[in-house]
Write a protein that binds this DNA or RNA. Sequence first.
DNA 1: GTCCTACTTCAAGTCGACTTGAGGTCAAGT
DNA 2: ACTTGACCTCAAGTCGACTTGAAGTAGGAC
Lengths: 131, 131
Amino acid sequence: MQELGIGEVVRRSGVPASTLRYYEERGLIGSVGRRGLTRVFDETVFERLALITVGRSAGFSLDEIALMFAADGRPRLDRAMLAGKADELDATIVRLTVMRDGLRHAAVCPAASHLECPTFRRILREAGSGG
Amino acid sequence: MQELGIGEVVRRSGVPASTLRYYEERGLIGSVGRRGLTRVFDETVFERLALITVGRSAGFSLDEIALMFAADGRPRLDRAMLAGKADELDATIVRLTVMRDGLRHAAVCPAASHLECPTFRRILREAGSGG
DNA sequence: GTCCTACTTCAAGTCGACTTGAGGTCAAGT
DNA sequence: ACTTGACCTCAAGTCGACTTGAAGTAGGAC
C-alpha cells in the first residue's frame, strides 16, 4: 500500500497536522512507522479519519471512538458496546429529527415568538419526554 | 403562572443550579424576577431547558441556541437562520444514520477487525463523501 | 556550506461549557 | 439568639479537544 507523509494526509483529508499528531498520541490513528523522524501513513488512515469525524459529530468522545477500533481484546464486549452505541445513536436521531421539524416549523410560523407557538411548544414537549 | 424557586426547577428538570445560573448569565433562560436575592422562574423555563438540551445534543453551541430564542430583532434573518439550522440538522441526521448502520453491522460482522470488513468500509466511505 | 521546506518534540495556551469553593444573605425553626 | 438550609455572588478550576509557539532535525537545491 502506498506510503504517505503527513503533509499528503493533510492535503487529502483536510485535517490539520497538529490534529493528526494529537490523534496518533491518543491512539486513534496509527502511523505505519517512521522514516527517520517523520511519520508514515497508509491509505487506511482516511477511513479512520472519516470514522472519527462522523463519530465526533455523533457526539462520541475520542475515547469512545478509540474503543470502537479496538479489534483485539474481548470482542464480545466490544460488539455489545457497538450495539449499545447504535441504540444511543437511534435515540439521538429521533431527537434531532424532532428538533429539525421544530426548526422548520419555526421558520415559517407566524407567531411572534417561537415559544408562543403551540406547535413549537408541542414539539418541544415531545422532545423533552422522548429524550 | 406558578412561580418556582431554583430548587424546584432543579428537582423537576434535573439541571443543576450552577447550570441554571450559568444559562441565565448567558441569556438562555430568563428568571421572571427576584424575590429578594433569589431567582424566580415560571413554567416556561422547562420548555427552554428542553430546547437547550435537544439543541446541545444536536451539536449547537449555546450561542447558537440563544439566537434561536431571539424573537425580537430582525425576524427575517432569524427565520432564514432557523431554516439553515434545519438543513444542517438534516445533514447531521444522515451522517448519524450511516454511522448507526455501520455500528449495527459491526456488531454482528464476523470480520476480526471492523476496518477489515468490506461492508463497514463501504459505509465509512459513504459517510466520508456524503458528509 | 547554507538555505529552504517539511517535518519533529514538548510545553503551554485556548475555547466552550460548566463546576467548585469561599464567603455572604435571608427566612424559618427551636 | 442562634443554627440550619436554601439561596446568592464572584473568581478560579476542570475537562475535552485541539492549537500555537519555540526550538530542533533531516534531506535536497544551489
